[in-house]
Design a protein around this nucleic acid. Structure first.
Length: 221
DNA sequence: ACCCAGGTGGCCC
DNA sequence: GGGCCACATGGG
């Protein structure tokens, strides 16, 4: 069972996910921040509010009053910190890149990732989501599901972000579309497995479950 | 009435 | 380096 085989199984089970759901590159970034530790449904509501108020542009977010911003993104939860985080990003964008994503994205992948990580409120996963889904550069996105699933499958031992990311990038072809789809599929599977019971690997994939069950002796669902 | 969601940063040791 | 904690709304 290697990473490409797992990928094929997930694709068979769930089909193409076609992430990231957004109208443009800027919306991807806003969505990446708003969905932190929140369901996509809730992040979507916040995005809809921003859209209705024509706030999904760097200039508009740069100018808007933070209290107003907080009100608009409330449904996404953690709305005060997230309002600050959105401001941190656009402030950074205007201070260093003239407010233009195009300029920021002209950096090399490594430099872009480093720059994003220097912004308060943008950690590993959000940075990689932006690099991959907004800038379209091949940086594999790791999330809590990725670590949970691949640990249970016995494919990874190290649980640190960088280690897991390296494992995927070293064992997969360096391909943007593959990275995009793989992460989306992992999230889809992640929603189907139990968080608290390490032995529970319920999922809609017969062969997958067979493998998981033999590895974990799972009888759930 | 719980539990969880496509995390992050700040503190403490 | 790792282990807690706050942050907060909405859905199951």
């Amino acid at each position: 069972m290697n990473l490409l085989e797992v990928y094929e199984k997930l694709l068979d089970a769930f089909g193409e996910q076609n992430w990231w759901p957004a109208d443009d590159e800027f919306e991807v970034i806003v969505g990446a921040i708003l969905t932190q530790q929140a369901s996509w449904k809730n992040a979507e509501k916040a995005i809809k509010n921003l859209k209705q108020h024509r706030m999904l542009r760097s200039e508009a977010l740069h100018k808007v009053d933070i209290k107003k911003l907080e009100e608009l993104i409330k449904p996404s939860g953690f709305y005060r910190v997230k309002a600050k985080r959105l401001k941190s990003f656009v402030d950074f964008l205007f201070e260093k890149y003239d407010g233009k994503l195009e300029k920021l994205f002209s950096l090399s992948m490594k430099d872009l990732r480093r720059e994003l990580l220097s912004i308060n409120g943008i950690g590993n996963e959000t940075a990689d989501s932006i690099v991959l889904y907004s800038a379209g550069k091949p940086s594999f996105v790791v999330d809590a599901y990725t670590i949970r699933i691949f640990s249970r499958l016995g494919l990874i031992k190290e649980k640190k972000y960088e280690k897991v990311k390296d494992f995927f990038e070293k064992n997969l072809p360096r391909n943007v579309d593959l990275y995009k789809e793989y992460h989306a599929l992992i999230v889809e599977l992640g929603k189907n497995i139990c968080k608290v019971k390490p032995k529970c690997f319920s999922c809609p994939l017969n062969k997958w479950c067979e493998y998981a069950n033999s590895a974990n002796n799972c009888a759930e669902k």
